[in-house]
Design a protein around this nucleic acid. Structure first.
Lengths: 253, 253
DNA sequence: GAGTGGTCTAGACCACCGC
DNA sequence: CGGTGGTCTAGACCACTCT
């Protein structure tokens, strides 16, 4: 009959495209190089632009590409390892801290945060915004929620200078004896304000790191940090982390 | 003059749709409930199906929805906390381990893995496959790469019984004195085989946890575990983790 | 077989960047 | 201004699951 159903499970075009592009990136392109534009690439591969974009989207998700509106699509450098937990427990804002305090406000947190802090809903807390830069690129934005009870001696603050206010909250926090902390990592999408800070579009994939700080038998602070998922590899433990992934794949038989 | 440019920055339709749907999920739906199908939803909101799908995709990415071909779209339960690091260091396969050994082969690993293991390219290693189930759902698939040098006493193995072979490798590994380990978490997309194991489509977003085990001054083993990003929240540290996120958002002013 | 989500097309217009 | 990626449309067909 001739029709030896070669592909009883034909893989989707965009999936095949992704593989082809991925191999081309390994062999024919260098980091930072700009690719042909989407319309041309689509024509070259004989697919609709939407299909090509589906492949590009995945490659961007995997940190292989970087796309910027009005500019073009470039080959991304390998993900930067970003140290998240050094092993020992520490308050935010300590000596070797990679963060920069931006400002601080006093507001009612989302109800989910209030629950985690074990405080009543509608009760306001200090909200410290911080940002983190690595290799010249913004990689993370953080909201640190600190109940008033955790920093009782914070008084007569200069409300005008927001950055100073933020630093004052962090300084007061250091004086508490830190008991333990725990951490969770999950996938999320960037809210509008985070996206702006991370130089991405709203909805961009981010890794959300939630850290709870315990002191004096209470939850003394809660940090919600959103990292750019396309450019970051979060590392835990002593050393710098592992350099793995995407590369000429040789499948285990 | 009536045109007081209400929306000088008109947010995209799919973004607005996502917000509307998200609020509807909070108030009008219960976990497990199935939503109207995509064609109907698109008609109801007066948008093209592709646009609706863009909103659904994001909600699925955030763990709010679960979509299954041939079945429908359902409201997802909150993400399950999955303990990844207990704080203390331990070999895989130890007593309280949540993993199930599947099988083991002997093959040449990808070059990136060979580099991390500090072994020559083309040198074969033990590759142990394991899978992890939580609340009755598969949540992770792992490939554990073990150089032959790390398990020298592994001899006369029953090559027929793959699962037994896997357990034998893990057992031998326990006898090594573990020095340290380090860990990295990054976003990836599921390879075809992982996707099958995780009951997802290829390309589904996953959290890739790479763990390096050091013993006797060498990298004694390397684990690459892929977790379903839509259903999992990876927790580190002692307790079960934090329950945060997506919920009626009250923005800090 | 009926109904679902997944893929794909060929177009259009918009928002943004750099010249 | 021209060129880029981002959004959106209205259709079509396919792969899958359930009954």
């Amino acid at each position: 009959m001739g029709t030896t159903h070669l592909e009883s499970v034909p893989e989707p075009k965009y999936w095949h495209l992704k593989t082809v592009l991925s191999e081309a990136l390994d062999s024919e392109f260098t980091v930072g190089e700009i690719l042909p534009n989407e319309r041309e690439l689509a024509a070259r591969f004989g697919v609709a632009r939407a299909t090509l974009r589906q492949a590009l989207e995945q490659l961007e998700l995997e940190g292989r590409l970087q796309r910027r509106r009005g500019v073009g699509t470039t080959v991304a450098p390998p993900r930067v390892g970003v140290a998240v937990g050094t092993g020992q427990q520490a308050w935010p804002g300590g000596g070797d801290d990679a963060w920069r305090a931006v400002d601080s406000t006093d507001a009612v947190p989302p109800s989910t945060v209030a629950t985690a802090l074990e405080i009543p809903c509608e009760q306001s807390v200090h909200i410290v915004r911080r940002s983190r830069v690595s290799h010249g690129q913004p990689v993370a934005a953080e909201l640190l929620y600190v109940p008033h009870a955790s920093v009782p001696d914070l008084s007569a603050i200069d409300t005008a200078n927001q950055a100073a206010r933020a630093r004052a909250v962090l300084r007061e926090l250091q004086r508490l004896p830190l008991d333990t902390q725990d951490r969770a990592v999950e996938l999320g999408s960037a809210r509008a304000d985070d996206a702006k800070e991370l130089d991405r579009l709203p909805g961009a994939p981010v890794l959300v790191v939630t850290t709870r700080f315990f002191a004096a038998g209470r939850t003394a602070a809660l940090s919600v940090a959103t990292y750019r998922a396309d450019t970051c590899r979060l590392t835990f433990g002593a050393s710098g982390g592992v350099e793995i992934h995407h590369g000429p794949e040789r499948q285990a038989s």
